[in-house]
């Protein structure tokens, strides 16, 4: 059961941390800006050396921007969760009436706010410096961003469950997850470029539907509504599965004593 004041408390905690520490705010913009600048110039160079090839800026930079958005959403959830690991706060939080639903809701709300700020900076930088415009996508951008957002949430909750189960030292497994998935999701190339086993994994990843759709629109071939809905449904199912997994790990941690020991292990 979700209680809004408790959910708000979890998000407020993150807001306090960001307000008091610029080093927590910087990553929302810094890596995104670096990626936009790097890939913006790569796209510009490729456009210069390959006459007649369609708009590299739109395809490459657009893909980077959207993948960064997804990564930020996921890290928004995991970073908020890891703040509780780093500050050894689980005992205080979970020996209270806070439910798992309210806690996860708070992590998601935190991520929504942080990723929207990040998205605004991305769009401003890509548009202002490299002339990238998503105008050609129009309102289609909204459902595509929604799919990426939902998958970012699902993966963030999954990664948090993994750290809760495996212990604080497993934190390092969280950060490479987006990079690990990107070859399968067809961020920079069509899925049919991949061998069939990689395509099968790619089809289980909602972002692959987004990037296939975007490439199709940029190439002037329109978009497939069933594919878009398929990606959306897949992402929603994965959120439900991730929440179920977190709740199951939480329950197991209470049964095994892991949750009670977590604070001590955080400093081990």
């Amino acid at each position: 059961m979700i209680r809004w004041p408790a959910l708000y408390a979890i998000a407020l905690r993150q807001l306090y941390l960001m307000r008091g520490s610029p080093t927590r705010v910087l990553p929302i913009f810094a890596w995104v800006a670096v990626d936009i600048v790097l890939w913006g110039f790569i796209a510009r160079y490729l456009a210069r050396v390959s006459d007649g090839v369609p708009d590299f800026t739109a395809t490459l930079l657009g893909a980077v921007l959207l993948w960064d958005f997804f990564s930020r959403v996921m890290q928004g959830v995991t970073t908020a969760f890891l703040e509780d690991v780093w500050s050894r706060n689980f005992l205080n939080l979970f020996a209270s009436p806070l439910s798992v639903g309210s806690y996860l809701g708070g992590l998601v709300l935190t991520s929504v706010l942080a990723s929207l700020i990040g998205l605004a900076v991305m769009l401003a930088l890509a548009g202002g410096v490299f002339g990238l415009s998503f105008a050609m996508l129009g309102l289609l951008l909204v459902p595509y961003l929604l799919v990426l957002f939902l998958f970012g949430i699902a993966l963030g909750i999954f990664a948090s469950a993994m750290v809760l189960r495996l212990g604080p030292a497993s934190e390092w497994l969280v950060w490479p997850i987006p990079a690990l998935l990107s070859p399968f999701a067809g961020v920079f190339y069509p899925l049919d470029t991949l061998p069939s086993w990689m395509q099968a994994i790619g089809r289980a990843l909602p972002p692959s539907y987004v990037f296939e759709g975007l490439r199709s629109v940029v190439a002037g071939q329109g978009f497939s509504m069933p594919e878009l809905i398929g990606g959306l449904v897949l992402a929603l199912v994965q959120i439900a599965l991730a929440c179920w997994l977190f709740a199951a790990v939480f329950k197991g941690a209470i049964r095994s004593g892991l949750l009670a020991r977590y604070s001590a292990e955080s400093v081990a």
Binding site: A9, Y16, N92, L93, S96
Partner: peptide, 13 residues
Amino acid sequence: LTVEQNLRIFGLI
């Protein structure tokens, strides 16, 4: 977090 921030967060919870 400051003393008041901690008390506010747990008060909400």
